[in-house]
Amino acid sequence: MTKTLTRTSATATALTPVPAGVHRLARLCRAAGLFLLIVALVLIAIFPIYWMLVTSVQPSTSLFSWPPRLVPSDGVSLGAYTEMLTSSGLLGWVGTSIRVSLATASISVVAASLAAYALSRFSFRGSKATEIGMLATQMFPGILLALPMYLVFLRLGLVDDVNGLTLAYLAFIVPVSATLLKGFFDSIPKDLEEASLIDGTSRMGAFFRVTLPLSAPGLAATFLFAFIVSWNEYLFARILVRSAENWTISLGIASYIGEYVTPWDQIMAGAVLVTLPVAAMFLFLQRYLLQGLTAGAVKG
């Protein structure tokens, strides 16, 4: 793009007799404009995150000072973090969330990889419909599923139960995982499998010994994706979980909203602790997600 732009200006110089100084000035202005635009865009993206960090290390005495301290000029305090880690329910919520997310991600990857393999390697009656159906599950609002599920789970005794929540997450995470994994399997050449089939391996043998090991990055990406989605989920947890001892991390930290006295330094400290692991996973993951995300849209 830049190359094209410089060429544009080169052509322009050749065509119209503009003094060299004016031209340099114009280019300088454009560079400065671009720089300011980049700064503004970066600020929009990261200021809230910066503010979360700054608030979390603010000594609680200067939390409500006016004007707000835009940099932690009153010193840095880690009191909010120790408070969150020792005398709040945070660790319990993290424990529940880890349990639900690990179970959801593990089961999703197993179920999804079998289906994704079938969809990627065979054309069978109903394969197209299955594929479209998996996508369609993502298209309607979650509450249309969560509310009737609540009624069914009430009858089955699965409300306010960590396993019930896991089951609910599987309902909408397994189909996306299968969609993602199918993309990964499609990108692995069939020849390798066929070679081992000719050598007398069974279909499943070829799947387990050839395709699966080759798609390890895809499996990892799908696992992380399912983990992050269940870690961040709020609606289903809100509807299906009642008592505080079963709260996931989303329910736990959201419970501070609307409290009469709000300890914002502690809430922000909790927010940082909850965000760090999943944000790290996410940044690692986005490259893989993106390959699947954009491949289709760009071709046109």
């Binding site: 969609t179 993602l180 993309g183 399997f185 992050i228 997600l289 699947g292 995300l293 491949a295």
Partner: peptide, 14 residues
């Protein structure tokens, strides 16, 4: 369901 959805349009990949 926003975060879930972030992954969906993956279909036509590959």
């Amino acid at each position: 369901m926003g975060a879930v959805a972030a992954g969906i349009p993956a279909t036509p990949g590959g």
